[in-house]
């Protein structure tokens, strides 16, 4: 049993008359020589770490970060005081993603999903949606399996690292994983899952990795929040019957090609883009002086 593409994964679902979550669980059980029950148990542990990171990140006031200052905490205050737009879903997607991104930047314990730099996207989108629609943990775990399935087909066909293909391959893929999983949680079809994933990734194509001062702070943490909201937007469009048009597998290959065309300065070297802006350079210089590098 092998999963290397979305089309193959969907074929397996038809052949076996199983849903996406079950096929992913069986694939992993087969691959790591364990049972589906064990796979779900490990996913439950993963969910626990995601939730703890959200809670800890909201408390985090930026003691261990260098440029950013407790973004989850700031947003939580603003949300409680009614200073920001939107309802509870919109608030929570932004809040949870910021909190986890902040916590990661401050050396907190997180789930890399698919990478540490993008670790706020999936918990931001999925935990907020699950709360909004009142999903049980069991339902959420099934959706997390689907999320992982989108990740497996992405990593099988394209790079998952800013150094290789820019942020499109980190926050972009995370957004696709979350979008697909939300569609599953909402009862959408397998085709809609990958339609949503494709729409989410399409919105990230070309996105470079240009962090200031080689820190995982700016623009990484706020981008986790925008990529999480994009996941919800993409899921909503797919649920409404809007197609991805370009199949997910082809979108991943396009992402890979775009990554190859990206100059090295825009692939996690902190030498181009925002990192090379006057403010970016000034902040880097300040860091070097402050920490005597």
């Amino acid at each position: 049993m092998d999963i290397t593409s979305a089309s193959q994964l969907l074929e397996l679902c038809t052949e076996r008359d199983q849903d996406l979550a079950q096929v992913v669980a069986e694939y992993e059980a087969f691959r790591s020589n364990t049972s589906c029950e064990e796979v779900r148990k490990q996913m439950r542990e993963t969910l626990k770490v995601m939730r703890a990171a959200v809670e800890n990140g909201i408390q985090d006031k930026g003691e261990r970060t260098h440029i950013i200052t407790g973004y989850g905490h700031l947003f939580n205050e603003a949300s409680r005081e009614g200073r920001v737009l939107g309802g509870s879903l919109f608030h929570n997607v932004i809040l949870y993603a910021l909190a986890v991104g902040q916590y990661n930047a401050g050396l907190g314990r997180i789930v890399a999903c698919p990478t540490a730099g993008a670790c706020g996207v999936v918990p931001g989108a999925m935990l907020a949606v699950a709360e909004e629609v009142g999903s049980s943990d069991e339902e959420l775990i099934e959706a997390l399996l689907v999320m992982g399935g989108v990740g497996i087909v992405s990593a099988s066909q394209g790079p998952i690292s800013g150094a290789e293909a820019g942020c499109q391959s980190e926050c972009g893929v995370a957004s696709a994983m979350a979008a697909g999983a939300i569609v599953h949680l909402m009862g959408g079809s397998g085709e809609q899952v990958f339609g949503a994933a494709s729409l989410a990734l399409q919105s990230h194509l070309g996105l470079v990795c240009d962090p200031l001062a080689s820190l995982v702070e700016v623009p990484c943490v706020t981008r986790n929040a925008t990529s999480a909201t994009t996941a919800v937007v993409a899921a909503n469009m797919a649920l409404a019957g809007i197609p991805g048009v370009i199949p997910y597998d082809e979108t991943v290959v396009a992402m890979k090609q775009i990554g190859k065309a990206m100059p090295e300065s825009l692939r996690e070297t902190s030498m181009g883009g925002l990192a090379a802006s006057p403010t970016g350079k000034r902040l880097y210089k300040e860091m070097r002086e402050k920490y005597r590098l």
């Binding site: 907190g108 997180i110 789930v111 999903c113 540490a116 497996i152």
Partner: peptide, 8 residues
């Protein structure tokens, strides 16, 4: 891809 659980 859903992991590892790690310190950032």
């Amino acid at each position: 891809v859903v992991g590892p659980i790690m310190v950032g």
